[in-house]
Design a binder for these strands. Structure first.
Lengths: 341, 341
DNA sequence: TTGTAGGCGTTATCAG
DNA sequence: CTGATAACGCCTACAA
């Protein structure tokens, strides 16, 4: 182990091992043209000294920092935090660190801000969460600035090396199948906001499944929210007012689904007896609300880890999957329909 | 503005301004011993070139990175994320960036891990969230390593320059006062886990207020949880079984309070008619649960901003408050007691 | 396969 | 007050 005092530098290692700095540098960077004996000798000294290359010096020389950035404007705190944990799973015990950078999608200066940020911090790469990950200009900016990037999304937004994706469309189809199997025929949809690819995918999956089952989908049974709780309350009220025969509602995320619970209570509609509700995300609120909510869960943490590995270990990047399966989490917010028309 | 191409360096500025690098450096670092005319001349060139000092080079020369670290093991995602936002409010448009570092309180290697982390990244300073902020060894480690730090906590854990605190004890007393004013006399407490200072403070505040009002506090009316939802469910069941005359329960955080809602429903107890419930944190679940929960909110984001400023702007640090008032957020989970003994 | 010289962009030292 | 010169710790180019 290292003694206390100033940390050993590459010079110390070189001197003690009796080789040049460059040779030590080659060992660190796994240069292939090194004699095995030399490598082992140097590695022994490195271990004895507890030497770790100084990231600041490397950053200066390489013009590139050992920092991964997390760009996000996701409204779901748990999603963001799970993602952070996943990234840290990937970079634990490496010299990398994770810097976070919330962005404001609505600011006209957003791209310029990010440009400055990337230029200043010289990040090794960035991980981009939805919905901002759907912005192609942002991806182009990363490419232009020579900054690695991986986007997380609910559709094939980019090439495999720049993407980890969940298949939202398929999952929502599965949700509808499940509801239909239980006997539901009049199902409402609270969709997410325009401009969110996830909202688009989820709606398309819903509509496709309804059509496949030959089920009627009147336009009043589709109401738009903005992914926030309150919009779910309002959307559910509107949907239930215009469409009293609906026996189930799928909301495009858990927060809006929780809003729908809220509206149902205000109207004296019992969940799930009078109305089945399904959300999307499997966020904590789904488990904590009453009755516990049936929803769709996706493996954020694993996706985050894979995304980070694509950036920091490009050699194994090929081995990292880009597609991640979601799963239906059945709890108690769904029951066979009781209502008769 | 800068033209495209390589970013201008201190050499470019020096050459064009006709001064030495060191003089430019002095301008950047606001050295007091500079002639006004020289300073202005250099500043003009800096503005023209759109020059920004390279943080990597500064990090190497100063042996200190312009990075703030966030050390946390807080189970509440929204709290952590709000804190991140607050820190970013403080460092927006500066060269600082925020790196996150979840820690595992239960790992025996935790302190060593953090030591390595600080040594490797040479952070400018760290912000420490509760409950890990209550660990004095960690604070000592920061001091030993010459790393700035600010702790966030619910009590006076450290000197003002290293602390932003909320006064949980007072707030819980206010909660009890509120409940008593409404007529409650038999109030239960679901306290947080041992080892959490916040849990301790909240319990002490509760007990002090009960005593002050001359109210009886049988030991069965105090149950311990672990700040998680499930522990709230169990604690409420136990409390209600052993103490059926309780008309109100204060839970030490919102998540456990949400668990208490859950238990109440399972027992057919109506909130707030049969049982009033109060939480702590004002996390999203408090607003989204039914009926909306009365709770205690504290200004995390402002606290985070102040904490970050204490680190990055030590000159104004004195001006930053260390004490932040919480406030009672009254919603619909509290009503006068209806039960008769 | 290894070593030497020089550079990355900034700050510290110390003389002027 | 200002400037030459030498760090800071690592990497690239080129030479041997």
């Amino acid at each position: 182990m290292a003694k206390s005092g100033p940390a050993p530098t590459i010079n110390d290692v070189a001197r003690i091992a009796g080789v040049s700095k460059k040779t030590v540098s080659r060992v660190i960077n796994r240069s292939p043209l090194l004699k095995q004996a030399t490598r082992e000798k140097v590695e022994k000294v490195i271990a004895e000294l507890g030497y770790t290359p100084n990231p600041q010096a490397r950053a200066l020389a390489l013009r590139r920092n050992f920092l991964l950035g997390l760009l996000h404007d996701n409204p779901n705190a748990q999603t963001v935090l799970n993602f952070q944990e996943g990234v840290l799973d990937a970079i634990r015990d490496t010299e990398f660190a994770l810097v976070v950078r919330p962005v404001d999608r609505h600011s006209p200066a957003m791209l310029d801000d990010i440009r400055n940020f990337l230029e200043l911090q010289r990040l090794y790469g960035v991980l981009i969460l939805p919905p901002i990950s759907e912005n192609d200009e942002l991806a182009a900016l990363c490419r232009e600035m020579g900054c690695g990037y991986v986007r997380m999304g609910s559709a094939a937004l980019d090439e495999a090396e720049h993407l980890v994706q969940s298949n939202d469309r398929e999952m929502v189809e599965a949700v509808v199948d499940y509801l239909v199997e239980l006997g539901h025929e009049r199902i409402g949809l609270i969709e997410g906001p325009a401009g969110f690819r996830s909202a688009f995918e989820r709606r398309e999956g819903f509509l496709a499944a309804m059509k496949r089952h030959g089920l009627d989908m009147p336009s009043e049974a589709l109401v738009q929210g903005n992914y926030r709780f309150n919009s779910g309350v309002e959307a559910a009220h509107q949907l239930l007012s215009e469409n009293p025969h609906v026996t189930a509602i799928f909301a495009s995320n858990d927060e809006m689904a929780a809003g729908a619970y809220h509206a149902a209570r205000e109207r004296g509609v019992d969940v799930p007896t009078d109305l089945s509700l399904v959300g999307f995300d499997d966020s904590p609120i789904a488990a904590h609300i009453w009755p516990p909510m049936t929803t769709v869960g996706w493996p954020i943490r694993e996706m985050a880890k894979a995304a980070a590995l694509k950036l920091v270990a490009p050699d194994t990047a090929e081995a990292q999957p880009s597609n991640f399966p979601a799963r239906l989490v059945t709890r108690n917010s769904v029951a066979p329909p009781a209502k008769k028309i």
